[in-house]
Nucleic acid binder design. Structure first.
Lengths: 224, 224
DNA sequence: TCGCTCTTTATTGTATACAATCTACATGAG
DNA sequence: CTCATGTAGATTGTATACAATAAAGAGCGA
């Protein structure tokens, strides 16, 4: 038959476990400091401990959890310094991404940027079911915006590296979207970045992106 | 007994496997593109497949090998674009490290920098058993130099991230040390960086470090 | 009560067995 | 000769058993 086994490279359960575990930690379902008991996770995910251990090794390598020999895995905790360090790095890396993107961005990607920027702006007037859903939506749109730029930078290593810097639990990432004032500032930065990218102005794109992220950092730090 | 089990946190064999595997790949013992058969590694390392798989998942997460479901692990190959991307990232990250270090560096660390810089200079006149041993020594000293700066930046995330960018097989990293001319240029950069750091001049430290790395990239690209 | 040792229990680390999947090669039809 | 098909062997993915270690608590003497 023609389509008998076209699939090839069927996904593997340990990969699924990795993705899920990662998502759940970021979403806050496993709080920082919480122990991750292999047997418990195995039961919950409906697999044996083997793929769980595989996944734990990976998230540990990524930095989201720490593994202590013979004592198990614990979700990483974030203190003030950790967050500062993470945002510093993010500013450098995404600044670089923006600068690279300025000369490599396609028309389609620019259009996508405009679209998400508009979506974020319009949400200022929109009605939401509840605050939580609203913030979730904003964080998601914002993520699309930033991802688009990173992808346009066309540096695979960068794209692989960044997630491990961004892997900060949601609870820390949402502060930028709580007040209308901060939203307006974010929108301003997004628009400025788009303009710089349209003009192919790498240096401007870099500094705007960096300032955008530093602002995010400062807002977060004030809320602690 | 007093000292019966003070040890605590005894290292675990899968960690040892990870370290060794990583070293061997970087050293070129497993060439890019080579398959890493679990059973073979297990026999060679004297352990079962379980810790091998654990270690493979980690080096894969780090990017040194790629794992294809049901087809196994293959040492990552590097084409020209990969190398350019890696060096671009390295320039950004180590530039950042140098800038941070400029305001945080202790006297002891500065002394260590001077020492390794001197060691690299003196090697110009020194006699070595063979070229290979010589280059190995230079690469090692150079690594100490760069590590010292990264550590002085006091950003743990940065220190964790960088190795995955630096993880380029040795065969690619040694070109900077083949000609006396390149060694002199490297020495010049090292000295300039030290001066900037001593003066606490973050911007200068950053740009010198970036140029240092870009030079390394260009030399490497020419040799391909 | 405090501090010590010993035991018990929970959990991790490793080895091994088996199932699932891929690869290579042989076979045969056109 | 070329291409498809089937089969054998190699290799990976998962489950499970067991060993090793750490954490918590019981018992006991001072």
């Amino acid at each position: 038959m023609s389509d008998s086994k076209v699939a090839l490279d069927e996904p593997v359960s340990s990969d699924a476990v990795y993705e899920r575990l990662r998502r759940e930690i970021i979403a806050g379902r496993h709080a920082p400091g919480a122990r991750l008991i292999e047997e418990r996770l195995a039961q919950e995910y409906g697999v044996s401990r083997t793929p769980i251990r595989q996944a734990l090794a990976r998230v540990a390598q990524e930095g989201l959890v720490r593994i202590f020999p013979h004592r198990g895995a614990v979700v990483r905790t974030f203190d003030r310094d950790d967050l500062v360090a993470a945002y510093d790095l993010r500013a450098v890396l995404e600044g670089f991404a923006a600068a690279q993107a300025a000369t490599r961005m396609g028309a389609l990607q620019l259009a996508l940027l405009e679209e998400t920027a508009r979506a974020l702006e319009e949400s200022l007037q929109a009605q939401f079911l509840n605050r939580e859903a609203e913030v979730l939506y904003l964080v998601e749109q914002n993520q699309i915006f930033h991802n688009t730029i990173v992808n346009a930078a066309a540096n695979e290593r960068l794209a692989v590296l960044l997630p491990s810097v961004l892997d900060v639990p949601m609870q820390f990432r949402s502060f930028n979207w709580y007040t209308p004032e901060e939203r307006r500032i974010s929108n301003f930065f997004h628009r400025s970045i788009i303009t710089a990218l349209q003009q192919g102005d790498a240096e401007r794109a870099r500094s705007m992106m960096q300032e955008h992220i530093y602002r995010g950092r400062d807002v977060l730090l004030e809320s602690l």
